[in-house]
């Protein structure tokens, strides 16, 4: 049953986040041949529309307004309401990001609908669109269907493969005018604490450190390895609590949930709270002095050894590999 599905594209530092393209791919499955319309919202975002088409959007709706420069639930809800009234879709796909998590329940409530959040897979089976999502901190999964109303969905970054980028794809770009009024929350300031560069929740490679890193300086070799692999640095709660790094790097039940292709855990014991944030990574490497460390139970590959010896050697080997390939 073909249906029209919207996606909300997300902009960070003037560029589209990857999850925007993953949302398009999810929407394609949900649409079952129907139209996929991506919505991009901001103060000046029109130039980003073509990239969404290259990733598979049939059409892009641009909503520009100076009051939409920074995300607020009221502002974005007004923008999306205007788009929904015009487009009359049957579903909307968001990223399961700070923005998507904040906005999607408001819209689901407004339209008296369900919302399937934190989706890691979408498939069409037996006439149903079936969503898979983790529950119990990733220790189990559930499959859900929407039984009534709109299909609101948030997709976890890094889980649904985007379509191949193809600049020759054709699509139209349309503008929707909105009058944004009565913002009940105002963002006065944004304090940047996360590092420049690769976004932790979207990184393909994460090099994470735990208490075993011992100091803020101890993170330096991890940063070098992450840079070399085009990845990001993460940390366990223990390392954050000890003051070795900022809480913005924390991966775990409290903190970020990540699913990179490669997760290299250095000096991390593997407390349940940490595993909840990373155990669904595709490949896990553990480096720890303690052969009994819990992290080895979830690791695909383990090296029992001192991270300060192993990580520099790894950097060396990866450099060699880079030269050869």
């Amino acid at each position: 049953m073909a249906r029209k599905v919207l996606t909300l594209a997300e902009v960070r530092d003037g560029a589209l986040r990857n999850v925007s393209f993953e949302a398009v791919a999810a929407a394609k499955t949900i649409a079952e041949g129907g139209e996929v319309v991506s919505v991009v919202v901001g103060a000046s975002v029109r130039s980003l529309a073509n990239e969404l088409i290259a990733y598979g959007a049939d059409r892009v709706v641009v909503v520009e307004h100076e009051k939409l420069a920074t995300y607020t639930p009221d502002g974005y809800a007004q923008a999306l309401q205007a788009v929904v009234e015009q487009e009359k879709p049957e579903g909307i796909v968001f990223g399961h990001t700070a923005l998507g998590k904040d906005l999607s329940p408001k819209l689901a409530a407004k339209w008296q609908s369900g919302l399937v959040s934190d989706v890691v897979a979408v498939e069409e089976t037996g006439g149903n669109i079936v969503f898979t999502r983790p529950i119990y901190s990733g220790k189990a999964f559930e499959k859900k269907i929407v039984t009534d109303g709109f299909m609101f969905v948030t997709v976890r970054p890094n889980n649904i493969a985007p379509l191949e980028k193809d600049e020759s794809r054709a699509g139209t770009i349309v503008d929707v005018q909105v009058d944004i009024k009565d913002l009940r929350t105002i963002v006065r300031d944004v304090v940047r604490k996360t590092a420049e560069g690769v976004d932790l929740s979207e990184a393909k490679v994460i090099v994470a450190g735990g208490r075993g890193v011992k100091s803020a300086e101890g993170f330096e070799p991890l940063k070098e390895l992450a840079n070399l692999l085009g990845g990001a640095v993460g940390a366990s709660r223990g390392a954050c609590d000890a003051g070795y790094c900022d809480y913005s790097l924390q991966i775990g039940q409290t903190g970020k949930v990540v699913t990179p292709d490669l997760y290299i855990a250095c000096g991390i014991s593997g407390a349940i709270q940490h595993l909840a944030g990373m155990s669904n990574s595709k490949v896990i490497v553990a480096i720890n002095k303690d052969p009994e460390a819990n992290i080895f139970k979830v690791a695909d590959y383990g090296i029992v050894g001192d991270l300060f010896e192993v990580v520099p050697l790894l950097i060396e080997e990866f450099k060699k590999l880079k030269v050869h390939s």
Partner: peptide
């Protein structure tokens, strides 16, 4: 409810990981 859970399952058991052996530089 507007949604329905049709199945709950545990993640596939991870195969036993490989703990590498030998000299550290060989392991790396």
């Amino acid at each position: 409810a507007k949604t329905k859970t049709i199945e709950i399952f545990l993640p596939p058991k991870k195969e036993e990981g490989k703990i590498l052996q030998g000299d550290i530089s060989e392991q790396v």
